[in-house]
Design a protein around this nucleic acid. Structure first.
Length: 932
DNA sequence: TCTACCACCTAC
DNA sequence: TAAGGTAGGTGGTAGA
């Protein structure tokens, strides 16, 4: 009977030192964990040699015992348009590791043969499991139906020298030897098992624990679905009486650790979750086990489905962990990527995203809590449990994995690679597959030297065009944007590594981008990248169509994640082409794409400003002037002009004698999008996206819109802020709150007076700040900045460095790179960087805050940039003397009438799937304190 | 006082 | 076996 399962992980094992067997790990539709063994897949690579290939082939076979066979094949070379294929050798080895082993040796044969030209090897650095998945058209999270009988996994476990077989710890429910398999279309997710865990250590002095000396005293689990009736478990490294049924105690740390691994394997999770466990918990457990074993303790730290042990590897600054057959998912980087937050401590993240409080035990009092026999001990246990719960909830409640599962399915990369890595592995998987199908070989990854050269060249890559904004307040602004601009440019102009003219020339006309270079048209050779993009775009269109007919919420969510994944992949190819460490790097290609983009947006502006210029609004149609014929009285002329644009968007200001309704403006929007679109090559398309009833343009990449979007037969309105201080995390919350309110008053209410009054009150509140009473305001004065590198490597002083150094002095703990460090500016003399201080420290020590800094540097400048549009001037030097007013009112009344805000539809609560959802600024009124 | 530079974060 | 890209605003400091 065939076995259906979803691929979670893949690797290979060598049996009898002679042949590799692929192992596909997965979860079956029946809920069983599966290991599927696939024999008979062989490792290979390509060699481009000069001279007589038969001679070279024989020589390679004779010289290397690792070589199983050599065939002559015809392939295109990786880059450039070619009229004909080149003869190359396909070298098959016995074992996967032999491919890189003989790669360099084989090139030396060139000297032996005294052959001319340059020999090259291709596809020598493809992981064997990936080679298998790509060649067999499988991939991560894909469903497979495997034929075959069950088999003893022991046959496929390599025994090491000590004869210590891992098979007794092989945790898959089912093992099968595949005689055949098929990919299966299936939208559902297998019934996966999720486990989150968290450890507590006892450091010596409240500082960072070190695995050589600080024991692990507690480990908490959170399960989904539950384990033997338990949603959570807490393990204790000491005997304790009278515990709840979900707190299990052991004689000592060693026994607890052994039980940790025992329970772990018994539960057999597919997804192993933690919060920062890649960087902390897993390495810590690994090293702690090592320490204990070296002290003579017996611990068998198995976590892999094949019986492999816990471990980690460090690459530069990052740590990678692997658990065979499972996927290790650290919630921290996923939350970082999905949400723009000021801080990413588990405490801050849980509060912000789950509305749940983290419990806490002060590091210095841990020992006291641990030794306590009453409430404190109970609190400690609950604190530990809560951390495991929160990690699991972040992943499951926020559905953080959906996107990655879809990306794995659509790209063909394994889920672990997609979760850990960037876009590179996904793009390369797609490229390898398509290159293979089109008889083209792919280059190896560039070495450090080559990438360094490329980095140096990269300054030659020009990007998108940003149009100078018409600064100020505008009414009725249409927002149009190009649907997937760069991918559609690549498709429209057949821009690809495989179509760029580098040697061979085609007969007819070629495509010449504004940036230079030359590409053959698709009639001559259809580019591989454009083909991949076309496929992705078609799939996306189909997926969106299926979404509309989705029968339930779950199906809808899966489809939505899929279309989002397709969009991400579509947009990855351009970036990849200009990425110095890419296998395929082409500045010519990347520059071609952006240069077409730049000329396109400039063209669009020209068409709208000049070619169209004005449009006639008549009854239910928007007409071009020359179509209009005679104007009759209710007709209106609308003047169009592009007010702003960035890369793929244009903001069109619609000026008319009378009022324009949203419907009328959208009529114009659709008409414009249409006119421009028909002038473009397929599949480029300008889309009418939305309307800004009012738009406040401050500078390039900085603006605020009162934004209306068509939503199921009505309009949904909101304020959309881009680039301004409200959305920047290096400004304090008080700035966001103040600015948001000002924007609301100015954009929606059209009431500048009230905005000024509001700012005045905020300023006076800050000036008369009483830290004891107004702790909430103090809270809102906290700034944060990311520590982007090692402290020593900064050239200039920075406020967050000052704080990092203070922290190091006081606690010995150095914040790690990538951490956002909070700080406030304290009162005193001298440079402001030297007065940055840790907010907790300020609170505990009653240090006073530099209110003047906050007023002059945090509140007023951003507010000023907005209000000066309305002629409000601030005598920003005078407000120290309380006699004078804060503002010189030249009270030029804005040309904005007060307007009722139309009732908007109820917004769905949290749309967590959206990328970069930044909850923070969504509701400035969360703090009623600042509502006057 | 002006300017060049570093640093950060954002838009697309 | 680390890592998609460029454009751009703003603030702070050091040094002319």
């Amino acid at each position: 009977m065939p076995m259906d399962f979803q691929i979670l992980d893949a690797d290979y094992e060598v049996i009898n030192d002679s042949s590799p067997v692929i192992r596909l790990f997965g979860r079956g539709a029946d809920g069983k964990s599966v290991c599927c063994f696939v024999p008979d897949f062989e490792p290979y690579f390509y060699l481009k040699a000069s001279g007589d290939l038969n001679t070279v082939a024989r020589l390679v076979e004779e010289t290397f015992t690792q070589v199983k066979k050599v065939e002559i094949v015809e392939k295109f070379e990786p880059i450039g348009y070619q009229k004909t294929k080149t003869k190359m050798l396909r070298v098959t080895t016995h074992l996967p590791r032999e491919v890189p082993e003989i790669r360099d040796e084989i090139l030396k044969l060139q000297e032996v043969l005294k052959a001319e030209g340059k020999w090259e090897v291709y596809e020598t650095d493809i992981l064997f499991r990936n080679r298998f998945l790509i060649d067999k058209d499988l991939g991560g999270m894909v469903w497979v139906s495997a034929e075959g009988g069950s088999v003893d996994p022991a046959k496929y476990i390599r025994t090491n020298g000590s004869g210590n077989s891992r098979c007794e710890k092989f945790t898959c429910d089912t093992s099968i030897l595949a005689s055949g398999f098929n990919k299966v279309e299936n939208l559902t997710l297998a019934p996966l098992k999720y486990l989150a865990f968290d450890i507590e250590c006892l450091p010596l002095d409240g500082g960072m624990p070190s695995p050589e000396v600080s024991p692990i005293i507690m480990i908490s689990f959170s399960f989904e679905p539950e384990y033997k009736g338990h949603k959570t478990l807490v393990l204790l490294a000491k005997p304790v009486e009278g515990l709840n049924s979900d707190v299990w105690s052991y004689t000592d740390e060693t026994e607890m650790l052994n039980q940790f691994f025992e329970i772990f394997c018994d539960y057999d999770p597919d997804i192993v979750i933690g919060y920062n466990h890649q960087d902390f918990d897993i390495p810590y457990i690994t090293d702690r086990v090592k320490t204990l074993v070296s002290e003579g303790k017996a611990i068998n730290p198995v976590v892999g489905r094949d019986g492999s042990k816990i471990g980690y590897r460090k690459f530069g600054l990052i740590t990678r962990t692997e658990m065979k057959g499972r996927v290790v998912v650290d919630a921290l980087p996923l939350v970082r990527r999905a949400f723009s937050l000021k801080q990413y401590t588990l405490r801050a993240v849980s509060k912000e995203l789950l509305s749940r409080e983290k419990l806490d035990v002060p590091p210095l009092e841990m020992e006291e809590y641990w030794l306590d026999k009453g409430e404190k001990f109970k609190k400690f246990v609950d604190y530990s449990r809560r951390d495991a719960e929160l990690a699991l909830e972040l992943i499951l409640n926020l559905r953080l994995l959906d996107k990655y599962v879809a990306l794995a399915q659509v790209s063909g990369s394994l889920l672990q690679e997609v979760v850990d890595g960037g876009q590179t592995s996904m793009v390369e998987t797609l490229l390898l597959k398509e290159f293979g199908l089109r008889d083209r070989v792919l280059l190896p990854k560039p070495d450090d030297g080559v990438s360094a050269e490329r980095y140096a060249m990269s300054s030659d890559l020009k990007g998108g065009e940003v149009l100078e904004p018409k600064k100020g307040l505008l009414e009725n602004v249409l927002i149009l944007d190009y649907k997937s601009l760069y991918p559609t440019i690549m498709m429209a102009h057949n821009l690809c590594y495989t179509t760029v003219v580098t040697g061979d020339r085609s007969d007819g006309v070629t495509i010449r981008p504004p940036s230079g270079g030359e590409f053959v048209p698709s009639e001559v050779y259809k580019g591989i990248v454009p083909s991949i993009l076309e496929d992705l775009l078609n799939k996306r269109t189909k997926t969106k169509k299926r979404m509309r007919g989705a029968s339930n919420e779950n199906e809808y969510r899966v489809l939505d994640a899929t279309q989002l994944a397709l969009k991400i992949l579509l947009n990855s190819f351009y970036g990849y082409s200009g990425y110095a460490r890419a296998r395929l790097y082409s500045l010519t290609l990347a520059n071609a794409v952006t240069s077409f983009g730049r000329s396109n947006i400039l063209n669009t502006r020209e068409i709208i400003n000049s070619t169209i210029g004005k449009i006639i609004l008549r009854n239910k149609t928007a007409l071009l002037l020359d179509e209009a014929g005679k104007l009759s009285p209710p007709d209106r002329v609308v003047e169009l002009s592009v007010a702003y644009g960035d890369t793929d968007s244009v903001f069109v200001h619609c000026k008319s004698s009378g009022d324009l309704s949203l419907e009328e403006v959208s009529l114009i929007g659709n008409r414009l999008a249409n006119i421009v679109s028909v002038s473009l090559p397929d599949p480029m398309e300008l889309e009418f996206e939305s309307i800004a009833k009012r738009a406040l343009l401050i500078a390039k990449k900085r603006y605020a819109l009162w934004f209306f979007e068509p939503k199921n037969s009505g309009w949904e309105d909101k304020i959309k802020v881009k680039g301004m201080e409200t959305v920047r995390r290096d400004w304090c919350e008080l700035t966001s709150i103040t600015l948001n309110r000002v924007l609301e008053l100015v954009l929606i209410e059209g009431d500048v007076d009230q905005a000024v009054e509001y700012v005045r009150q905020i300023v006076s509140k800050v000036r008369n700040l009483d830290p004891a009473k107004d702790s909430e305001i103090v809270e809102s004065l906290v700034l944060t900045r990311t520590l982007t590198r090692k402290i020593e490597s900064y050239k200039n002083k920075q406020p967050h460095l000052t704080v990092a150094e203070n922290l190091k002095k006081r606690t010995g703990v150095v914040p790690s790179i990538g951490t956002r460090i909070p700080f406030v500016i304290t009162a005193g003399k001298g440079l402001f960087v030297d007065r940055a201080e840790d907010p907790d420290y300020v609170r505990e020590n009653n240090i006073s805050i530099d209110v003047d800094y906050y007023i002059k540097k945090q509140i007023l400048p951003p507010v000023e940039r907005i209000l000066e549009v309305f002629g409000v001037k601030m005598s920003s030097l005078d407000f120290d003397s309380k006699q004078k007013g804060l503002f010189d009112f030249e009270a030029k009344k804005p040309e904005v009438k007060k307007q009722e805000k139309p009732s908007s539809e109820k917004e769905s609560k949290v749309k967590v799937q959206e990328q970069n959802l930044c909850e923070k600024n969504g509701h400035a009124s969360q703090s009623s304190l600042f509502d006057f």
